[in-house]
Nucleic acid binder design. Structure first.
Lengths: 207, 207
DNA sequence: CTGTGTGAAGGCTTTCACAGCC
DNA sequence: GGCTGTGAAAGCCTTCACACAG
């Protein structure tokens, strides 16, 4: 429920990583974990893990560690992944279609409830159970299904236009795969995944 | 050629963004750009852009700005994108196959020269011109083609094992799409793209 | 005695303010 | 006058050191 802004964005990212590790521990029937052990699994320092957690409260038992199940549920609450979050995907090309088929988001609390494309009929929607609609259906769909998040996999030239449509429709968060900088109003959030940028970055570090 | 370690990693990332914007300017026959204008296009402050650039030298003309073409070539040198860099892809499932078909990396200086999978024959390699080999061919291929970078799109359970094989084969940089933390020796670099983490992160910011 | 929680210190990145050059 | 280059300041995040609880 809170929304304290003075929590480092990086801490939030790490919360997701911790959650992954906790899930794996849960599968292995581990009930308790120390900050040392969990931090190692997540690839961070134990002090950082503890600091990250204290932004949201105190969950550990001194001398013992953290209860895996309880910590996992707490982090789930913070990240809002304890309710299935509906997501739409816009742009059903190569990448978009692959993400539709992937479906592994569901386990993390996200469900792609609909897809949109300028040419819904020729879109590569084979094998996926998600329906592909034309762009004209977007506004009504978002309102009807109370969708707040969108995955954007359209070509660069369309990215900003579609973004505007999404914001207009009431979308608050966009996961952008187009290699371009998107402009959105204050109240909306964009995370960009740029594959070429990641490759270039690696390329720099191996010379 | 250099490899100064005291350059912020984030600056390197931004260099890629600047490069994108410069390319677009070049297409529009723009010859000169101010730090103010370029920064705006890249979504950063102009002082940050200038600071980023000074890590590598002085490229601007006071009172005028930067020469688009020259700056672009300089950044290209730094990022090592002026030679086509060979890349392999391991794990030809949904996402892997989509990336193979995508092919948009070439424009940024990367070429996927080969793909690998435990089951190369049933891999989804349709429509792509990249050949899919069995994992046993990996070592020889990497050596023969002098490949230094790999894209990893295998399931979580296989990720660390395959990573070890890659490092063993001589791969220095890995772009990892598996939702797990990879362990690599000092001399190797990993960049991870975790779609679920990105979604969770967004989810946090819209509550 | 083990392991968490946390104020303070340290380190890194961004921003400011302005000197310097065209 | 306009715009870059840059030392210094500010801000932010990580790490340390240790108090404190079980």
């Amino acid at each position: 429920m809170p929304h304290k802004v003075d929590i480092p964005r990086k801490s939030i990212y790490r919360l997701s990583i911790y959650q992954r590790c906790l899930q794996r521990l849960k599968e292995n029937r581990v009930e308790t974990v120390s900050s040392e052990a969990l931090a190692k699994a997540a690839g961070v320092k134990s002090t950082q893990l503890r600091k990250d957690l204290t932004y949201f409260g105190q969950f550990g038992t001194r001398g013992l560690g953290y209860n895996v199940d309880q910590l996992s549920r707490t982090i789930g609450d913070v990240l809002g992944q304890n309710r299935l979050q509906p997501v739409i995907l816009v742009g059903v090309g190569n990448l978009g279609a692959a993400l539709l088929r992937y479906g592994g988001f569901r386990k993390e609390g996200f469900e792609i409830v609909g897809a949109f494309d300028v040419a819904p009929n020729q879109a590569r929607h084979n094998e996926s159970s998600v329906r592909v609609y034309g762009m004209d259906k977007l506004g009504a769909f978002v309102k009807q299904h109370h969708v707040k998040m969108a995955i954007l996999t359209v070509p660069v030239v369309a990215a900003q236009t579609v973004t505007n449509q999404l914001v207009e429709a009431g979308i608050l968060a966009i996961l952008n795969f187009s290699p371009t900088v998107l402009e959105v109003p204050e109240h909306a959030v964009v995370n960009s995944v740029d594959l070429a940028v990641e490759l270039e970055n690696l390329s720099y570090f191996i010379r």
